[in-house]
Design a protein around this nucleic acid. Sequence first.
DNA 1: TTTTGAGTTGTTCGA
DNA 2: GTCGAACAACTCAAA
Length: 445
Amino acid sequence: MKTALVWFRRDLRLTDNTALHHALRDAESIVPVFTFDPKILKLPDVGSRRVAYLLACLDSLDKNLRHLGGRLILRAGDPVDVLRRLAKESGAEAVYWNKDYEPFALKRDAAVAAMCRSEGLVAHDFHDQCLQPPGEVLKQDGTPYTVFTPFSRVWKEKPVAAPLARPLSVRVPEKIPSDPLPTLESLGHKLDIILPAAGERAAGDALKAFMKEAVGRYKSCRDLPAVEGTSRMSPHLRFGTISPRTILASAGEARAKHRGSAAEVDVYVNELIWRDFYKHILHHFPHVEKGSFRKEYDAIEWPNDKGLFAAWCEGRTGYPIVDAAMRQLNQTGWMHNRLRMITASFLTKDLLVDWKWGERYFMKQLLDGDLAANNGGWQWAAGTGTDAQPYFRIFNPSSQTAKFDPKEEFIRKYVPEVDRPSYARPVVVHSEQRNRALALYKAAR
DNA sequence: TTTTGAGTTGTTCGA
DNA sequence: GTCGAACAACTCAAA
């Protein structure tokens, strides 16, 4: 084949990119394209921070392609129109892309596949985003798992493909014009944080740094927000500037190297399996996007006090660990995983606000915001998801602080006024709200 | 079909 | 301060 389009979406990398790899093997030249869909960019749930980060990833991808002799083609419009036109312009015979399992993406990609059929283009889509593709990890009766532990047992029995090598060169036809990289402002967004480094190099550096040391104490330190004990890979995984296979392979090497701490590394690998788990859940049970995994909990009558919700968003609930966490999110676009659980439990069980409100706010603020992972996490905390145990999952902010930030180092970083009279008084009383939450859940069942 | 064991990350209470 | 049991009796997965 002479020419193929490679449609980049959430896989903004050259190394171990399944669709890119196949296109380069099958075609003499490729047209690497990213489409800006103005419809998506105007949605209220599209966080400005992620749009800004996306632009940085695209800029980096273009530079990396140029390094290999190619370049990235940017086009605005509905992907169906953009790809149809681009195929005509370049004489491409096929379109390659990596599958995305979100309901919106499934619909969009089906429309592109239909366009390909009617235009005589061959559509190739590949599993790439998960370590095990959705539909691969099933019970003996062929139905999907809804409990993590048995899912993970079967997951571990299956082989994972090794990462594919980075291509050595990329040939892109001349005279295919590209739009300039848009500015954030031109897309109708504004940035209110300092972005962390984006792109494949940054992702690789972050992985290396994590695997050198911190992974060996991951199990022991990952829950301490004052310590750099987590991998910080989430924004890179979100935009695909690194593949999960590269991370898994690197964890395997680390496990072999520091043999004494294999158990520490295994806990990290489990997190990669959780990432797959929630992507599979979304794939098999798409209704979770709009409501509870367990539909009976859609009946909960949340009081939804707007003032309490605003206090939570702005980090002024008077509960130091919650406020510090929300300020970390607001000021950096990232929140430590332990704190995501604490703040989610607090919003739902203490402030009695619908978990979907919190889910939406996280999506607005998080650089790593991902439907499957964010939704899964919120439903876990709210007790409406897989493994629902609402009575069992009401965090006490002070015992969580005692366990995970005992010296209040993290709290003081974001709430320096914690001991001063100017600090907010608690907006609710935990022990009272706990009982109200239990009653709300009981009434729904 | 029935039974059995287990369920990411907790909290509270009382000894 | 530390430890184990109770929480409430549920649902899932597998034999």
